[in-house]
């Protein structure tokens, strides 16, 4: 049932005309994927999926999509000219999928699941099992993926950061460090007299 909902909402992502609705359908798909993980007994992965994808990534998606001002008529104008290229891309992807599926059929005979990397131990929770695997066998791969993400992050910041001159900025440290003596003068002017600054 969960997989069915994923497929349906995945279709709805593509078919819905309103991009915000698409993102909402995408969130439903994420949720059901988390449900599938739960049914496989991978509760840690399920929760992480909800936290990271639903709680953070999809929020940012929604954020961006809501702010975009998309003109649909303009989008459809170029449809015919992009069509051949799109078809080629779709064809390549479909071919890759078919090849991958064929390879999977060759490796594992149908009906027999591919052997897991480590045997699931009954007394170890799957958080511990994941940790034991990620930080030992796949430690370098794990670190490398972290580096890739860091590079992407720095790249995005460098690309979008603009140094603007003439902008007034608040320096909290400076504000906190100010003493009353530097900022206030207490005077008692007499009647009809001004204050000398």
């Amino acid at each position: 049932m969960l997989a069915g909902i994923i497929l349906l909402s995945g279709t709805a992502v593509i078919l819905s005309r309103n991009p915000v609705h698409s993102v909402l359908w995408l969130i439903l798909a994420f949720f059901n994927a988390a449900g599938l993980f739960l049914m496989l007994g991978a509760e840690f992965l399920a929760m992480i999926l909800v936290i990271v994808y639903v709680g953070a990534v999809a929020v940012l998606f929604l954020f961006v999509v809501m702010m975009l001002d998309i003109d649909f008529a303009k989008l459809r104008e170029g449809f015919v000219s992009y069509l051949p290229f799109g078809l080629i891309l779709a064809g390549v992807l479909a071919a890759e999928l078919i090849v991958a599926a064929m390879a999977a059929v060759v490796v594992g005979s149908p009906g027999e699941p591919v052997a897991p990397v480590i045997a699931a131990a009954a007394d170890v929770s799957n958080t511990e099992a994941l940790g034991a695997l990620i930080y030992t066998k796949y430690a370098y791969v794990f670190q490398a993926s972290g580096m890739v993400l860091l590079t992407a992050m720095i790249g995005a910041i460098v690309l979008t950061h603009r140094q603007r001159s003439g902008v007034k900025r608040q320096n909290i440290g400076q504000q906190v460090a100010r003493r009353p003596e530097d900022a206030v003068i207490i005077t008692k002017p007499g009647v009809g007299q001004g204050v000398e600054l």
Partner: peptide, 24 residues
């Protein structure tokens, strides 16, 4: 459940959808 604290964290991060959807 084993991952109770993660569950709460996940669920509390969903509260934002109610707000952002209503806003939009």
């Amino acid at each position: 459940i084993n991952v109770g604290i993660l569950y709460i964290f996940a669920v509390s991060s969903l509260g934002v959808y109610g707000i952002i959807m209503s806003g939009w």
